[in-house]
Design a protein around this nucleic acid. Structure first.
Lengths: 155, 155
DNA sequence: TTACAGCTTGACAATGGTTTTCGTTTTCTA
DNA sequence: TAGAAAACGAAAACCATTGTCAAGCTGTAA
């Protein structure tokens, strides 16, 4: 598995020990195209028969983020994580479908240095439009979470 | 106070009763240029001698957001709120100083409809640069919150 | 291999922002 | 006013995340 080895090297290069648990967490993240939560990673590893504590998952995430191998996002107040490349970049995050696109680093003409752009991707814009016709304000990315929301409620 | 009356009208227009408490919350938000938390609003109203429950502040925020008078953001996992105009727009939010800029609605060439842009404003970029020289990845906006952080730690 | 220091792990408790519950109060409409 | 519906507040519940601490693991010098 050469890819995992490469990640291993990146871990070491960032001064983070490539322990078994951290590699497991990394594997779980690599298996997902979209950002997932610490709890999801935890559940997935348990399901795979890999015993790991939720605390450990959170700590592994923290190390991976510090090492620059993983980016953390915030969806409905819950942190989600996704592996990402070493080049300087920022993300476009679709609030509707969770899609994340990496974009080359960007500084706007006004000097604002972009780190993350939240919004609705092209594929999701159309249905949303027909629903409320571009007028009523939509939910903000930082909208307080809905605790009782089902698996993944869509507004 | 004609301004407050205008907000009153916007409330009514959105089908939200302009109750005394909601207007108090709105006033508190109007007094702040930057987004503030529900707890801050609560504390400020109590200090002004206006008895109000924290629950009520949260509920008022929710109504105001639904009515489109207020936008909600997420800073370090805590929801912050800010009044905003009726025109379609999105926000530039500086992760470092909390500054929020309203920008005209924007749809990128790739069809992505922008709702919020997190990053570092021009004024904050320079000091950050001298510190870590543009290489190491910085914190993401959605970075899991630090619960024990002081008033407002900056990394 | 052994010893040891330091890092990592996991169970559990604590934290703190937000939501729910439920009884009371206020507001709106007739 | 009266009655209905919405709003309110205190307290409890919820839940993602972090802190604590003892036990296990890893790297390294001897």
């Amino acid at each position: 598995m050469p890819e995992l080895l490469r990640w291993h090297a990146r871990l070491g290069g960032a001064g983070v020990r490539a322990t078994r648990k951290r590699v497991l967490v990394l594997e779980a993240l690599l298996a997902e195209a979209r950002p997932i939560t610490a709890r999801q990673v935890h559940a997935e590893l348990l399901q795979r028969g890999e015993p790991i504590g939720l605390t450990t998952v959170y700590r592994a995430m923290s190390s991976l983020v510090d090492a620059g191998l993983v980016h953390a996002f915030n969806q409905d107040g819950e942190a989600t994580y996704r592996v990402c490349g070493p080049a300087r970049h920022h993300h476009l995050i679709c609030r509707a479908c969770g899609l994340v696109l990496e974009q080359a680093a960007e500084r706007r003409p006004d000097g604002f240095e972009v780190e993350a752009v939240y919004g609705v991707c092209a594929a999701c814009v159309r249905p949303a439009l027909s629903e409320q016709d571009f007028d009523a304000p939509r939910d903000q990315p930082g909208r307080p979470r809905k605790r009782n929301a089902g698996a993944d409620e869509r507004d």
